[in-house]
Write a protein that binds this DNA or RNA. Structure first.
Ligand SMILES: [Zn+2]
Ligand SMILES: [Zn+2]
Ligand SMILES: [Zn+2]
Ligand SMILES: [Zn+2]
Lengths: 134, 134
DNA sequence: TACATAGTGTTATATTATAACAATTTAAAT
DNA sequence: ATTTAAATTGTTATAATATAACACTATGTA
């Protein structure tokens, strides 16, 4: 018996906004998204934020908290939408989702001083990307 | 020869705002800080944000990015103000700064797929605190 | 069909953060 | 002590990010 994975059929607004973010080479901000989808009939911030909330919830996109911006998940098969890690270039703002079994294993197994474990986390690394180091 | 640590004498506004955050049992938001220091003559958001920026820069406080809130550094001797880790209770919003030599060592030594290391990072763990687990 | 759930459209508003500019304080450097 | 540069302050205005409230519509399912 196969483990089923709930398929989330995106609604019209969700699909429009996901497509935009997914084809963007960089994280997009909510009002930039709004501007870009107005021609498709999405006119108000709330329509954007609602779609973003849902897309984040189902793991299709992630929020880069330090930038208030949204990026498509780069691990299409990622089961752990709630355990995310990114590298962020402080020069050019390039953001890359880190997919490291070792890292996620380490963090998932990490115990704090009271022995508490956390399956949900967000990690943002900062530095200079390859290009910007020159 | 002792390694000297630059002493940052706080200015009046910085001290007022640091004291407030430092005695708060929970992270404080900028406009809540503003409200609380108005009686001391700090009347405008910019005055608060400027002090916050400086306090973050020198490591006296940290920003909890997922909450847009500020907390006093709980590692007074922390040399690595730019390498932070927190646990956040999703029920009661209690935030604790994690001070783990193992964790910081692991993250500082972590290499991404291109062999890149990052000395600066921010990690936020989410879960239920001891109290909220009951 | 009837019901519940999720999504939509809309207006208004709340919250978080910065721009721009003049004045003042502070800490060197001469 | 005087000059100078850097940092900080005070102030007004505005930008950027995000949510509340409400009426309505689509969708799945019992
Ligand atoms: Zn992902
Ligand atoms: Zn770069
Ligand atoms: Zn700290
Ligand atoms: Zn709690």
């Amino acid at each position: 018996m196969k483990t089923m994975h709930k398929e989330h059929t995106l609604t019209k607004n969700q699909q429009i906004i996901f497509d935009l973010i997914d084809k963007s080479p960089e994280p997009m901000k909510a009002y930039s998204i709004l501007f870009n989808v107005q021609k498709k009939g999405i006119k108000a911030p709330l329509q954007v934020y609602r779609a973003l909330d849902k897309l984040v919830e189902i793991g299709k996109i992630h929020k880069i908290e330090s930038r208030n911006a949204f990026i498509a998940c780069q691990n299409s098969s990622c089961q752990v939408a709630k355990a995310t890690a990114f590298s962020i270039c402080e020069m050019c703002e390039k953001v890359t989702e880190i997919s490291s079994a070792g890292l996620s294993k380490y963090l998932t197994n990490f115990k704090d001083k009271e022995g508490m474990k956390y399956s949900k986390y967000n990690l943002e690394f900062f530095g200079l990307c390859k290009k910007c180091r020159t």
